[in-house]
Design a protein around this nucleic acid. Structure first.
Lengths: 216, 216, 216, 216
DNA sequence: TATGAATGAGATTTCATTCAT
DNA sequence: TATGAATGAAATCTCATTCAT
């Protein structure tokens, strides 16, 4: 037996539970697994969490908190101030990538969280789904706000920022998922840059005429 | 109760199971639920499927088959033959959207399949994951091939088609998921067009200089 | 494994559960104990009863049904029709004892039921308490009605029949309980006669004057 | 938290435990409930009692002690000394009621004790049962002794005093229980009088002939 | 072939009790 | 002495799967 202050023990349990959930998935992971991993008795977990799902919920809430915190901070983050004409595509894309990178870092703090968010917590129940939805909403809102700022600065054309942001976040997650499937660690920097470039510049060749009748 | 030739009954069970899985999720749905929905005894299901998971697997395999079939057909689908200079952005985007739409139709045949693929089957176990992975791979491969063809035709610039395709598919799914969360039916046509436009044209304003030193 | 028609199996489980509850008490008896006694798997019990308490409830309801049935039958049972002056105390007491005996037989069908009603089911929870209360009420109502009939016939003096009946039932149960404590089987015939005699004739000596000033 | 001399604290715990047991019942009441009510830590209870049941046992023992004490005192309590012929029924009944009242007061000191004795402690385990049995025996013995004295004085006819006493105590308890079920507070004075009257005078009408052939 | 009664492994959860502080 | 964090035995209950009919 080892005595521990309440908050520390709670954190300890969460840390181990995160790993176990990521490895085995929510259903396959038993409370016994978590407790064994944490080196505590089975009853101890129930002093800190009402039930198994509450543990998962707490993990997700941590992530949601990080997202919310980022939303606060982001509001003060500046946007390139130069006139559009003085900024190159690459510069705009780099700025966008840096922003995306910050978002990704906040959410997918570690590979375990990544796995849980994208795989193990999906389709569980309404409470969990609501949390996942809120996290997604937060993520998308941050990206959307970034796009909005760029649009205001004239760097981004007139488009539905909500849809565009959703598209970016979804794309990122799919790339991350593909990486997880291959059991490769996920390189968030590369991911962010890739996405920023594709979404920024588009995929069409410059040779394609923007409008009927004239060259691009 | 009612006698039915084997393959027909199997299909019947799958149809009902699909609905039940979509409504309740894999874990929450019990074998009893499925059998009741299909109007058969509990033991009967086991005449056609080894176990509960095999039912899900069969559903996913159906989808995978549709994807594979699409890959076959797609190989003969033509690409705009005109020179890039003779094609407008909008035309290219429309063509891309049509292609995406075909892909979406094949996979997300109905809302139930959509729900199962995106939510209820995620994170279950290695077998299921492998299937989901193969479906994703198929989808991405189709989109990628489309991009490749466009690139060959000079309509799309030089880019990592695999990554771009993954990004598109992921984005689409996220949009679909968002719609599912809101319990709205998903409009695949609108989705396809939106994605094609954003990915084709990019989000940057035309005023942003393509390269340092010269106007766009 | 042995297959059995639903109602038969239900009865079988109840029979064994009754014995186990009587022997060990509700809390000390585990579902496993009951199932082992009945020679069935643990899950089987839950096909017939929602939970452990429902088993007890069913046992009590059986008893309540017997009491209710007795109430129906009793309504047609006759009362000695002779004028009070033509009936001896002993005759009235004997009639009363026969009536009590019928009541006791209905409720305390067997020693197990007796034990459960008086000891193992007391103080469990509101549902169970309500049932016990209803059984008690039924018992008392029957005895009360008997007293009422005797009073109408002029054989019993004017008194609060409800209180008197409660007193009789309580007294009987205490005697039965005392017998149970001594692990003696309970002789319901002797009990009934004893109670009828004491309650009928009272305990005071005939030498005590009925009213101040005159001889008894 | 607060330091207290051992016996005082023990009494304090018992007082709160009594209330908690009466309210929730022995099983439903947790050690945590008791400790919270008593305003002490969970471990502290175990400094004074070996385990949860020992707390209940102590409560019952207190009651048993009161019963035993009453038995001592009662031995010197006098019986009406006048000749039977000089005493009216009502006087004898009043004396009997006073005696019963004293007994009831001793045992059912308060509503909590009443509840515990009649409901929450029944059917728990052999130790507790033995105590309940001893309390009952004590109660019955006191009443029995009273009856014996009255019989010696010629006020009560020749009867099995043990059975008669058991009957009275049982009847009283059932009346009390009925009152508890209705959540009415129990009026011990009324109870005692009712029982003394019914048991003293009997329920048969005076018009019923005591013996065949002659008037009562 | 179809059925659904029977099964039991295994999961979650409670709570009286212990013991480090 | 007082505390309350830690414990783990043991209980209930679920449900996918089997198999007698």
């Amino acid at each position: 037996m080892s005595y521990m202050r309440s908050p520390a023990r709670q954190r300890q349990i969460l840390e181990h539970a995160k790993r176990v959930f990521a490895e085995r998935g929510f259903h396959a992971a038993s409370v016994a697994d978590i407790c064994e991993a944490a080196g505590i008795g089975r009853g101890t977990l129930y002093q800190y969490f009402a039930n198994k799902q509450a543990v998962l919920t707490a993990i997700l809430r941590q992530t949601l908190d990080r997202v919310r915190a980022l939303m606060e901070r982001q509001s003060v983050v500046g946007v390139p101030l130069a006139r559009p004409e003085d900024i190159t595509r690459d510069q705009a894309i780099a700025w966008s990538a840096r922003q995306l990178r910050a978002v990704l870092g906040a959410v997918f703090e570690d590979q375990d969280t990544l796995r849980i968010l994208l795989r193990e917590a999906v389709g569980l129940d309404v409470d969990v789904e609501r949390l996942l939805g809120e996290i997604d909403d937060g993520l998308i809102a941050i990206v959307e706000r970034g796009l909005g700022a760029l649009r205001e600065a004239g760097l981004v054309r007139d488009l539905d920022t909500r849809v565009a942001a959703t598209l970016m976040v979804g794309g990122i997650e799919k790339l991350a998922l593909a990486a997880l499937r291959g059991d490769r660690p996920v390189d968030l920097d590369a991911l962010a840059l890739e996405v920023a470039r594709l979404h920024g510049a588009g995929s069409l060749s410059d040779r394609v005429r923007t409008t009927r009748g004239g060259p691009a």
